[in-house]
Amino acid sequence: MSILSRASRSVIALFTLSWALLLAAADMDYGLQPVAIADGTWVLVGRSEDFSTANGGNIVNTGFIVTPAGVLVIDSGPSRAYGEQLKRAIARITDRPVTLVVNTHHHPDHFLGNQAFAPETLAALPGTINGIHTEGGAFNDNMYRLAGDWMAGTEPVAPAKQLTAGPLDLGGHHLELIALDGHTGADLAIFDRSTGVLFAGDLVFNDRAPTTPHANLAAWQKALDRLEGLGFKQLVPGHGPVARDTAPLRQTRAWLSWLDANLRQAAEDGLDMTEVLAIQPPAEFRRLAVVEAEYRRSVGQLYPAYEQQALSRSGRNAR
């Protein structure tokens, strides 16, 4: 008898669990709350986490600038649902239309919300558009694996409109589009000279370890030098809280510089990749969110190139 009652209890538990999951699936609400940081300038700060089925991919910062000439959206988020909820959040604040949606770079959390917006409003640097064309599908598949049901109905949409670096006046906001690279092959930063707000995209991370799947560490550090010279009043990083100083920029540079030196030294010392993975990042970086996971990923992504550079100096093929 005890076997039967245990079995029935399991069945009941299983049914309850299935219902709980179904109800959760029906309520894919990111709870987006735009925060005003300057005149007409709003930011939506994501969680300092890895992609998961709990956060639905909302680990990213997006933003928008409301002007008399329309609304500029900076990055569209990780999914169709996020894009749609972002659009509704904007509509709660202004009835002006969204006239321009820019993707700062081609990583999935920055463009997979594009479907929610009118195709003619989408724009990005040419390198970003190419990246979305070539890698968007694989990113999207991977996001389904990592974020699950939140991704329902999401398809990659590449902008048709190419952005070029330079000034852009939008309804009285004097914007500067700055084309850089280093985090990916094409990274767009947007500096609003009217408000002093810099949208740095993923060139800057704040209290969260940077991601490096397409990184060129030298170019990235050069890009940070350029951003530091802008004299911004507020800094919106791609991930982590908004700042009023250059601290996140210096923190990102310090991490990249340590990563570069550490991997170079490891390769020069002949370490195997498993030995490089066992290295602990220095104490100053321990408080960065997801630092262990990002270090591990960065070793996998970047170490083979350092290794190859170290190995190339010797060895002669007998043939």
């Binding site: 002949g270 195997d272 290794e307 170290a310 190339s312 060895g315 093929n317």
Partner: peptide, 20 residues
Amino acid sequence: GEVSSRVWERKEGGERIRLR
């Protein structure tokens, strides 16, 4: 079939060979 390689002296004694 191209090989690149390098030999290191190990602090513990002996050598390490890495090859690709």
